[in-house]
Design a protein around this nucleic acid. Sequence first.
DNA 1: AACACGGGGAC
DNA 2: GTCCCAGTGTT
Length: 363
Amino acid sequence: MSEKKADFTQNLLNWNKGKNHRKMPWKGEKDPYKIWLSEIILQQTRVEQGWAYYEKFLEAFPTVHHLAIAAEQKVFKLWEGLGYYNRCRNLIATAKRIDAEYNGQFPNTYEEILSLKGIGPYTAAAIASFAFGLPHAVVDGNVTRVLSRYFGNPTPIDTTAGKKLYTELADSLLDKEQPDSYNQAIMDFGATICLPRNPLCDDCMQQTGCQAWQKGWTTQLPVKEKSIQKKQRWFYYFIVEVPDDKVYIRQRTKKDIWEGLFEFILWETDEPVYFNDNHLPPSDFLGQLFDGQALTVRYISRVYRQELSHQTIQGQFLTVRLKKPLPSLKDYLLIHRDQLGEYAFPRFINAWLLDPTPAQSLF
DNA sequence: AACACGGGGAC
DNA sequence: GTCCCAGTGTT
């Protein structure tokens, strides 16, 4: 077994030195701030999707100090569209902590790095190895797939037992003299050769030692235990206009999707609502909100739809006019339409903002 | 241990 | 449609 492990590691390092042609802007980087930034952006995110965000962030915030003192709104606006917005919240919190507690110098031990918000075992190992040459093996989706296949192991990768097993296996395979090269190599190998579907086994330098290949299990591995089921949600957004082209928005603060992003006045239901003529079913909702003040419905949009990993959002945008603003509407900001671009919105809302197609005009 | 959290790209 | 991506935090 240990001989097989040595082969695996040596093959990987040889491949990395000679035939790994994968290029990425943060590759070979030694600045822990830049490595951290890239790793946070790339959590559950494809390299191609995160690439432009990394460059935007680095330009706006060249050091952790720049990020720490930035207006939160500006950071969210840059993160807009990337998803998993808690990453952005934690990014800000950790930047502030490093700036204040570590005087802007990134901590250089695995335990300290792991203690930072938004940094788990994977990201801590990546920063520790890439920035400081510390011997910690990364375990991400690439690594579990590669190890499950190479060692022909059917242990599900998405269980506690599986995480423990593949983490220990990864640590035993790590080249402690060059943990950075090894970690880079195994992830690049997974991303370019040992692909999730249709891996390039014919061109693979690990073929002869690969259990999955020898036993024909390649398409069966890795095993995942949990399956996702989608929830259906219906969002009806009211764009409430008051004189001088102002609208109400608020920041989502609940533990739910899009926390930290902005939205209009939301009426959520668990089944679709069919609007007809000039009649608005949620009169109770709006009546309560505006204390019975008369409303004029101006537009009702087409039905917009967005697929997320775990839920399907469908809904419409209803433009409504009020004669005068309310003295105060709890939690809401009253802003000019021209200022909408300064706030970060979920993609579902931006789709409408970009193309506010009305299904009907109701003047 | 189970669940929640986005958006995009490949098939 | 389904899968999965340089995973983490909460309950």
